[in-house]
């Protein structure tokens, strides 16, 4: 029997909030995530776009392919623009709305991090989504702080591959004590759907880190985009989990519950995941070992935290 992707069927086939005709590259994973996210969030959603691929390909003026209100904003400002929009909707008395930032890794990890940190610390009622394709793809594949070690980009060319590990944005966000932090991947659409549904119900700062394959930048066949993202999770390079704030009965006793929401039946070594992509073609064995170790460490850490959560629940 098949693992059924649990997204309510009526949602799947009923009116789409995203239309075809966008100029995204073949196999770009971001529209898959957007499509499913909007199904979970519904039409009372405002999307805030900083500069990123999506803001360009979803439609240049005067066209848009998203059937929800969209606000464009300067690259580094998306989180706080969303804070402003959320404040305005609140003061206007608009209930049951979601203000969602849809930002790339540059707009999150790098240039966007100040505004993001501010909004997170204030616990503004926004949902910040980073669709992470691990480099500046819109400008033509330059390294960002989300680029993994060993990856080729146009600014980390052969002979100067990125030697630093990817920035741990998830830990950074968690350090802000936010209401909800999750990772998700369109390779696991029902998990992604459920997380957006959950985020919709939570007041305060929500952060969802999406892995988003970029066939052009990752040097992969567009058809393999979802398959390789699945491998990212199977290899634990991109574990899928969530951390939910539980408000304590007594002030000061808030806890953060960890749950690993996708535990793949099949495990693959990190090297398989890396080998599947042209951008890692020049990587040294040393780097592969390092990444494997990082992945193992992160997984162990997650298991520990999850188990600690479970113990605390008992």
């Amino acid at each position: 029997m098949q693992r059924k992707i649990a997204i309510p069927r009526e949602l799947l086939v009923d009116e789409e909030l995203m239309l075809p005709g966008m100029t995204s590259c073949q196999g770009c994973a971001a529209p898959i995530s957007m499509k499913i996210a909007l199904k979970a969030l519904g039409n009372r959603t405002v999307i805030v776009f900083p500069a990123c691929c999506f803001c360009v390909f979803q439609g240049g003026y005067p066209y848009t392919n998203l059937k929800v209100p969209v606000i464009h904003c300067p690259f580094e400002t998306s989180a706080v623009v969303a804070s402003g929009a959320a404040a305005a909707l609140d003061v206007r008395g608009e209930k049951d709305t979601t203000v969602m930032v849809w930002a790339g890794d540059g707009g999150t990890f790098d240039i966007g991090i100040q505004a993001l940190s501010g909004a997170a610390e204030r616990n503004d009622n926004i949902l910040f989504v980073c669709y992470d394709n691990e480099a500046y793809m819109n400008t033509g594949i330059q390294r960002s702080s989300a680029t993994p070690m060993g990856a080729w980009t146009t600014t980390t060319p052969a002979g100067a591959l990125k030697s630093e590990p990817k920035k741990d944005i998830e830990q950074i966000m968690l350090a802000h004590h936010i209401a909800y932090m999750a990772t998700a991947s369109p390779a696991y659409p029902d998990d992604l759907y459920r997380k957006f549904q959950k985020a919709r119900q939570i007041t305060g700062m929500k952060f969802i880190h999406l892995l988003s394959a970029c066939p052009s930048g990752w040097r992969i066949d567009p058809a393999d985009s979802v398959r390789i993202m699945r491998m990212a999770t199977q290899s634990r390079v991109f574990p899928i989990y969530e951390v939910t704030k539980q408000t304590g009965a007594v002030p000061g006793e808030d806890t953060w519950e960890y749950d690993i929401t996708v535990i793949p039946e099949k495990e693959v070594p990190v090297s398989d995941y890396l080998k599947s992509q042209g951008r890692f073609r020049l990587m040294t064995d040393d780097m592969v070992v390092k990444i494997q170790k990082q992945a193992d460490r992160k997984w162990r850490d997650l298991i520990e935290k999850r188990d600690a959560t479970r113990l605390a629940c008992v």
């Binding site: 405002v46 400002t77 706080v80 623009v81 804070s83 402003g84 929009a85 404040a87 305005a88 003061v91």
Partner: peptide, 21 residues
Amino acid sequence: IKVESEHSAMASLIGAATAGA
């Protein structure tokens, strides 16, 4: 909104003014 910089102060108003405030 007690923002973390002037840049964000002005930017937040992009969202707020667009959303009708």
